[in-house]
Simulated scan of single mutants.
Amino acid sequence: MHRHHSAPENTQELLATLGRLIDQALESIRVQQARADLGMALQRHMLPAELPDFPGIRIAARYSPSQDGLAVGGDFYDAFPMRDGVAGIAIGDVQGHGVEAAAFMGEARASLRALASVTVDPGEVLACANDLLISLGCDLFTTCCLLSVVPESGEFSVARAGHIPIIWGTDGGDSGISPDAGGVPLGILPDQQYPVTRRRLARPGYLVLVTDGVVEGPAYPIDEGLAAVSALVGAADAAEPGELAARVIEVADLTGHTDDAAVLVVRYEGVPGAGSP
């Protein structure tokens, strides 16, 4: 005859406690997933569905989301008309992840667009955007690189706020990293100045803007990442901008980085008699 033995009281209490902890863990996972879904929806909504072309300039972008599904980042890119037919081209990377980063990314992108209607000087745009973002009282900041290009002359100006430098290349196979001066990221210190470098587009070729998820990670120092992108740009051989952007975003797979990655490729046809980048 078998007798039924009930679990000791302390065992029953332990099982009840484990059950409550499991329920709490599942609820936490559901909340995190909901926040991730919201962040990704915000991010998709705030990135441009398509990028405009300008006379003699074509632009393409590629974006790769974080490898961690819950770590929605704030990488952004944009292209828009500034005053007097000047083309504005921007890329940036918000510090942090989640809904807050995605929302801050939208605020930064909207600030750049609004200020671009007032001035074509990228340094002035970044300085004003910096003060505007600080005034919002957020604890986040963003790096940014902003170009203004005059399509008719090939002249362009660049200002950087803590962002990765531009990689340039020509159809003749030359390429390099543009060592332009920069300032601090946007949203940290008020009343900042952002130096502007002015150049002229020459032979047909590319300007390539990336976020750090493309060129830097645990398995890839940033110098190696930039060199890899520069080699791809130099070997592009008049490829379509979308095709080159797709090649460049693949460099992110080599870095071991779990962050977002964004690439913006500017293809220009060149202006006779202009100097080199």
Results as ranks from 00 to 15, higher is better:
87 A>I: 02
87 A>T: 02
88 G>L: 02
90 A>G: 05
90 A>V: 15
90 A>D: 03
90 A>E: 01
90 A>M: 10
91 I>M: 07
91 I>K: 06
91 I>W: 02
92 G>Y: 08
93 D>Q: 13
95 Q>K: 13
95 Q>D: 03
96 G>S: 03
96 G>T: 00
97 H>L: 05
97 H>V: 04
98 G>C: 07
99 V>M: 03
100 E>A: 15
100 E>D: 14
100 E>S: 15
100 E>Y: 00
101 A>E: 02
101 A>M: 00
102 A>K: 09
105 M>V: 09
105 M>S: 10
106 G>L: 07
106 G>T: 13
107 E>K: 10
107 E>L: 13
107 E>P: 02
107 E>R: 12
108 A>G: 08
109 R>I: 00
109 R>G: 02
110 A>C: 04
110 A>L: 08
111 S>I: 00
112 L>I: 15
113 R>F: 01
114 A>T: 12
115 L>P: 01
115 L>N: 00
116 A>D: 02
116 A>C: 09
119 T>V: 07
119 T>G: 00
119 T>F: 01
120 V>R: 02
120 V>F: 02
122 P>R: 10
123 G>P: 04
124 E>K: 08
124 E>D: 11
125 V>C: 10
125 V>K: 02
125 V>M: 07
126 L>F: 05
126 L>K: 04
126 L>H: 04
127 A>Y: 05
127 A>C: 08
127 A>E: 09
127 A>D: 04
128 C>W: 12
129 A>T: 08
131 D>C: 09
132 L>R: 14
133 L>P: 00
133 L>C: 06
136 L>C: 06
138 C>Y: 15
139 D>I: 13
139 D>R: 11
140 L>I: 02
142 T>G: 04
142 T>A: 07
145 C>Y: 03
145 C>W: 04
145 C>S: 12
145 C>P: 01
146 L>M: 11
146 L>F: 10
148 S>V: 04
148 S>C: 11
149 V>Y: 00
150 V>S: 15
150 V>A: 15
150 V>Y: 06
151 P>M: 07
152 E>T: 13
154 G>T: 11
154 G>P: 11
154 G>F: 07
155 E>N: 10
155 E>Q: 14
156 F>Q: 06
157 S>H: 14
157 S>F: 11
159 A>N: 10
159 A>K: 07
159 A>C: 13
159 A>L: 10
160 R>Y: 11
160 R>A: 14
161 A>G: 06
162 G>F: 13
166 I>M: 14
167 I>Q: 09
167 I>M: 15
169 G>T: 09
170 T>W: 03
170 T>R: 10
171 D>P: 07
171 D>Q: 10
172 G>D: 14
172 G>E: 12
172 G>S: 13
174 D>W: 13
174 D>P: 06
174 D>M: 14
174 D>H: 15
175 S>Y: 07
175 S>R: 04
176 G>C: 05
177 I>G: 05
177 I>S: 03
177 I>Y: 06
